[in-house]
């Protein structure tokens, strides 16, 4: 619905955004790909030349890779489950006619605005520290030995922190979706004799399906790249117990200065993200088009 001139103009106007993003995507990615087949270490500058698949076999062959892959999946999956189940529950609660809804919303949404390193540090020191953390105090008060969270359950601790950060997001989106459910539909179901459980199962849950898909999609995008929370708490350890793929690449490439192997890890991370993205887009596409 426009003239050729307008369309030509439109292409020009779109060009900067497209070009900038294209460069942002293509150039570093191509470089990563290139490096991944090179012997390239900042520590040992004598080592150069084509490496073939050596970097890949080195990265993938190392047990740390398998562990990082499993950790990544556990991290993403764990956080998704906690935030969606918890978020649905809280959204249902906030959707009730409660007093002080405005303030409640603000309280619940707040963790989302806390930058990841702060979130990680206040949990690590204020809550999960066995000596003076809140959970330690609680354990002593209950007469239990305090848990050294990051030593004993490093990955689980990180899942808790990340879930705390993303719970508000899931809640807010599910709440928004809930509030768009028409009162009439709810009342009609009530008139039809559906009890609360049935109403949830047959009316509310299907209505939330779209919002849940969106939560999964967007959170996955962010959760695959979790980094700062690991950096400031466990540093990926003990061993590789809390290292995900993102952090593994950082450890290999930047901390160990092995550009070649780090790049190979980066390429693998991109491939994993793409596989996940394809699955997601397919699942989400079905839900979004409707």
């Amino acid at each position: 619905m426009a003239t050729r001139q307008t369309r030509a103009l439109a292409r020009t106007m779109m060009a900067p955004a497209v070009i900038v993003l294209l460069i942002w995507m293509a150039v570093p990615l191509a470089m990563t790909l290139w490096f991944s087949f090179q012997n390239y270490s900042l520590i040992n500058p004598m080592m150069t030349g084509f490496a073939g698949w050596a970097n890949y076999t080195y990265v993938i062959g190392d047990p740390s890779f398998t562990q990082a892959l499993v950790n990544t999946l556990l991290l993403v999956g764990g956080v998704l489950v906690i935030t969606i189940v918890g978020g649905t529950f809280i959204a249902l609660l906030l959707d009730q006619p409660v007093w002080g809804q405005g303030i409640l919303r603000i309280l619940v949404i707040s963790p989302f605005f806390v930058m990841p390193p702060v979130a990680a540090l206040i949990w690590k020191n204020g809550f999960m520290h066995p000596g003076y953390g809140m959970l330690g105090h609680l354990a002593r008060w209950l007469g239990l030995p305090p848990v050294d969270w990051f030593a004993q359950y490093p990955l689980f601790s990180i899942i808790i922190i990340v879930a705390w950060q993303w719970l508000p997001f899931a809640t807010l989106i599910l709440l928004t979706a809930l509030q768009s459910l028409s009162e009439e539909q709810r009342e009609a179901a009530e008139m039809d004799g559906a009890n609360a459980a049935n109403r949830f199962r047959y009316i509310i849950l299907p209505h939330l399906a779209r919002a849940i898909t969106i939560v999964i999609l967007i959170q996955t995008i962010f959760l695959l790249g979790i980094f700062a929370e690991i950096r400031v708490t466990t540093g990926g350890g003990p061993g590789y117990a809390s290292t995900n793929i993102a952090y593994l690449v950082f450890r290999t490439g930047i901390l160990s200065n092995d550009i070649g192997a780090g790049s190979a890890g980066g390429v693998v991370a991109v491939i994993i993200a793409n596989i996940v993205a394809i699955f997601l887009m397919r699942a989400v596409g079905r839900n979004l088009d409707a």
Binding site: M31, F35, A246, V249, S263, A277
Partner: peptide, 14 residues
């Protein structure tokens, strides 16, 4: 492009 993991391009950008 938002789905591209930052670590995939960290090293070249660095």
């Amino acid at each position: 492009t938002k789905m591209m993991p930052a670590v995939g391009v960290l090293i070249p950008i660095y």
